[in-house]
Nucleic acid binder design. Structure first.
Lengths: 205, 205, 205, 205
DNA sequence: GATGAATGAGAATTCATTCAT
DNA sequence: GATGAATGAATTCTCATTCAT
């Protein structure tokens, strides 16, 4: 019985992404992935060598999607400040629209980054590359503080954005509210931008 | 053969903390815990009802330790600004000295916080309670901006501190340096304090 | 994409012979055979009913080849002694040139001879038939000892020749030398002939 | 439910020997071994790391048994001829009493000797060491031909003995008789001794 | 003739947990 | 308190065979 629409390989990848994001590599079950993809478990091994191989493919696809979504951000703006705002905004909303991404990255980080590191060094190492360029440009142009530790700033921005989504279950309980509601997303983004801009701008506006 | 020193129960807890922190609830193996604790696996079930029960005990002990370490911080200071600095510093160095804590909390968050929530609501919900009080006090005293969203600030401080430790494997690769070296810890703490203070202080000093 | 030269059926048989000889019926994989034959796995089932059916065809072809190669041996000679030498030589060099044969026969023997027995009784039972006739002729003519147990001699000759090839991997290690090098083949054949002739000739020459 | 008598580990080894001898490493099923040993499959992995590890243990035990059974043979005799007879006899009857040995060795040889080689080189390489010493001694004493190729003789004796047992299924069909009946065993041994002695003795008696 | 995708039955291995002593 | 042996259910992966085109 053939299921129409997406081809098998695509369906497997999509199902695997959901399950790996939800439970991590260790917690994910091949059976669950196969069931979700509506394929025979055997087919999974037709398209991928192993659970790990499939996981790696999912990671790779996600990193590439993230890179594609963020690499062009803010190219239209001229002012470093506006560019930084645009870059962070783009990243934040990419995470909001792709909830699997933040979780995959977080599981992977806790597991030591073995898989990401092994097969995806170029992508993984890029981490917010657009923002890095903007910061350096802004520092050169005298818009941003010149004593910025770019590493620290990048680490903080990444963390401030990503953790919001990986911790949403817990924030939901603490706040008794859904952190992913549009208003809450906006509030969070506003807070992050405020935090970051106050810290990097040379003269406070 | 009896192993002297710590009693069995304590050794089990210590071993379990290491293993759960390293691999999460799902990835941890009861056999490995027993082996590390140098006890027969059966004894583990003498002291704890199940793997989950043991995990819960480990979580509880960790939260209590965190609370104890941070709840008294900055009681000696009077100035809200200094108190905030002291509170963040205390939390940050607690994390540095207790690397298992950040990892346990992160695994738990990714798993949905089921165990933490079920048995430890009072502790879990406290989340940086001391800092919350300080912020509110500082706002009342006119030292901090009055339009602060305390929730957002707490979330950010927590994230900025904790993620540094959960991502240390990956940062080590990106930076080609050990993020937990004393100098690097200081740099990170300085950056976090700078970021947060610039954001919460009413008038920049 | 059609691969020219040998037709599909022939290529399947050739590939199957290699794989069955190398790994036995149980160890052989249909996938590997199809890949080697450069055909779609489905075609294999077009030409043969099952893996066992293919295996049987391979066995049959091999027995027929062995029979053809040895049945005419030594017909030109008159002296039973020379005929025996010629028969053994022919068999030995057939095995040297057809390394798959000895292995197929050995796997089959260990598996109980089920397939060979079931479909190829006439061929299988012949076992060195030419030599049997020569021995009986030589005994009648007073050239060979008359108290020979023909069964035993046939069994021994067969074994002495075949095992050399099935054990070549192990001999290679023990001897630190390649048993299939021309010089080594000659040495072995000379030894076998010496062993057998000393045993069957009435008067030692 | 505990099964008395042999301990679990011994029962597993005994069952595994039967199954591996009967079907080879590849054909053997862990389930069948566990069932025969009357243990839970899980226990098998308690005592042995893997199927391969168990197989290796079986091989090792068999080689050691063979060595123990044959290494002392013919120590009481003085005459090289009698010693050779005794050594071959001992080996032949060891094989008759331990039908698993010949089959294990033959499967292993066909598989390339990977396992035997990897873990048991000293034993494996000994192969009929007693007979080798006897032959050399006999040559030195002028009892055996001095142009003997010891390698060839050892290979032949080994093959003549072992193959009789690995091919017994096929011989049973060809002969319409049970090759392992005492009379048949004696006949075979007599034939082998006749073959070998005629070949190695300097002067025929 | 030819093909890529599909499948159910089973293979080895792992795991948390408990029994007998 | 302490222990070695035992277990059933699950988990990843494999294989010969067939379907739809």
């Amino acid at each position: 019985m053939k299921v129409c629409g997406m081809q098998s390989r695509e369906r497997i990848l999509a199902a695997a992404e959901e399950v790996f994001a939800s439970k991590g590599l260790r917690g994910a079950r091949v059976d669950e992935i196969a069931a979700r993809a509506q394929i025979n478990k055997r087919m999974l091994y037709h398209y991928f060598q192993s659970k790990e191989d499939l996981y790696t493919a999912v990671l790779k696809a996600n990193f590439e999607r993230a890179l594609a979504a963020t690499s062009q951000a803010s190219k239209s703006k001229e002012d470093p400040r506006e560019q930084a705002v645009e870059a962070i905004k783009t990243y934040f909303y990419f995470l909001a629209r792709n909830p699997n991404y933040a979780r995959l990255v977080s599981w992977e980080a806790l597991e030591g980054g073995l898989y990401a590191r092994r097969v995806l060094p170029p992508i993984w190492e890029e981490g917010l590359p657009r923002l890095k360029a903007i910061l350096e440009d802004g520092m050169a142009k005298g818009v941003f503080r010149t004593d910025l530790d770019v590493r620290q700033v990048l680490t903080s921005v990444n963390t401030l954005c990503i953790s919001y989504f990986t911790q949403k279950d817990i924030l939901a309980i603490l706040w008794q509210d859904d952190p992913t509601r549009p208003e809450n997303l906006e509030k969070r983004l506003k807070h992050i931008l405020d935090l970051v801009l106050r810290s990097i701008l040379l003269i406070k506006g």
